[in-house]
């Protein structure tokens, strides 16, 4: 049974996780992922009738690919993040469900992320996430995150995390 305490605990985790991103503490953020983690952003489309699924997603990262993104921005030469984006992650509509496995929960959440760069470059990202969180010792870790952006044409290239 998902108790009030469990949901509060998960929400607190998600809020603190979002804070790490907004404070640009990307290595601390990456430490919240299990070594076998997957971070997926599927392609969203409007399709009609009997057609196959999209051939590949926008992002399907393992932990090393997430690390590559972080390292790239740390080179000091990653122009798309110079100056680095200001972001504000608003996380809401959190729903926690049990899974088959006693140490994992499935968490669905909605988000709005505002990204601001330079003088006037701005993007609003909105969507839903499906996470699998794993209990490791005293804390939660993210073992899978799927980010469904509610957009079929992206407002700019993606250089931030959701």
């Amino acid at each position: 049974m998902v108790t009030f305490e469990l949901r509060a605990d998960v929400e607190d985790f998600l809020n603190r996780e979002a804070r790490l991103l907004d404070e640009h503490r990307f290595e601390d953020w990456l430490n919240l992922f299990t070594d076998d983690a997957e971070y997926i952003v599927p392609l969203r489309e409007h399709v009609q009738g009997d057609v196959g699924p999209a051939g590949h997603p926008i992002i399907r990262d393992n932990k090393m690919m997430l690390l590559a993104r972080i390292k790239k921005d740390q080179t000091g030469l990653s122009h798309v993040e110079i100056p680095s984006s200001m972001t504000c992650h608003l996380i809401s509509n959190v729903i926690v469900d049990e899974t088959q496995s006693s140490n994992e929960v499935q968490v669905s959440s909605s988000f709005i992320v505002r990204q601001a760069r330079k003088l006037r470059d701005e993007a609003w990202w909105v969507g839903r996430r499906q996470d699998i969180l794993r209990r490791v010792g005293d804390s939660w870790m993210i073992s899978r995150r799927e980010v469904n952006l509610d957009m079929t044409v992206l407002p700019r290239g993606i250089s931030i995390f959701f």
């Binding site: 590559a68 798309v80 700019r156």
Partner: peptide, 24 residues
């Protein structure tokens, strides 16, 4: 081959967003 597409010259890859930045 496909992974290298979306990890690289793609809207969420390590290559294309820096091109976009120049145009901006």
């Amino acid at each position: 081959a496909v992974q290298r597409v979306y990890q690289g010259q793609h809207m969420a890859g390590l290559i294309a967003p820096d091109d976009v930045e120049n145009f901006e």
